[in-house]
């Protein structure tokens, strides 16, 4: 039921987007009433998206026939933003596709071309200046976060590489353990001999 609730929320968001971006409606007009199903391999479930000409309908746990069905892991899905990489992903076995490839490309292309003017939409509720300010701050924050993430990944990689140089190889560790065991054995033998000499 939670998945159904999440689907309902995403469907509402998509329909809101459809109201705000008429270009999306135009881009998908050719594929209306055709169902595009996406099987997410990690979750073993299929989601189906249908554009009816007025609204999107999104269903989870879909078991009916769809005009186009793709199957991929979650990590592959963001790559589908670019319709031209689809055939490449299929060749790499990262993507399975049954049905009409053009339907998948139409959806992929329509969402990739979206250029949402958030400031314009937000200005209807809070006015032009605050909307512009919020959007600019948002963009700055996004850029800052992106920069921080890149820096963090770079630093972390460097640290790991440095650590790699310092850290001993498992074979060296094995050799060290063998030496230690041999020294321990010699020390025990020596101790025994000293005791024998003292007892004479």
């Amino acid at each position: 039921m939670l998945t159904t609730l999440a689907c309902a929320a995403i469907e509402n968001a998509l329909n809101l987007l459809l109201d705000k971006e008429p270009s999306l409606k135009l881009a998908l007009d050719q594929v209306k009433h055709q169902t595009f199903a996406v099987e997410i391999r990690d979750w073993h479930t299929t989601y189906a998206l249908t554009f009816t000409g007025r609204q999107f309908m999104l269903f989870n746990n879909y078991q009916e026939q769809a005009e186009c069905k793709i199957s991929a892991h979650l990590e592959t899905l963001p790559e589908l933003k670019d319709p031209s990489v689809m055939t490449q992903l299929i060749r790499q076995d990262k993507l399975d596709l049954e049905g009409d490839l053009h339907l998948a490309q139409a959806y992929s292309g329509a969402f990739a071309k979206l250029d949402i003017d958030w400031a314009e939409h937000l200005s209807a509720y809070i006015g032009d200046a605050p909307a512009q300010l919020i959007v600019e701050k948002g963009q700055q924050t996004k850029a800052c976060l992106s920069h921080s993430a890149t820096t963090f990944v770079g630093t972390f990689t460097q640290l790991m590489q440095d650590e790699l140089k310092v850290a001993i190889h498992p074979l060296e560790l094995q050799q060290f353990k063998q030496h230690t065991r041999a020294i321990k054995q010699h020390a025990a033998q020596l101790e025994q001999r000293i005791e024998q000499l003292l007892n004479r």
């Binding site: 159904t4 689907c7 026939q65």
Partner: peptide
């Protein structure tokens, strides 16, 4: 409001097409 989710599931299983 859960009746809406029950109905969504029914619609998904109905297989209604153009």
């Amino acid at each position: 409001g859960i009746h809406r989710l029950w109905k969504r599931q029914a619609i998904a299983c109905a297989g209604v097409r153009k």
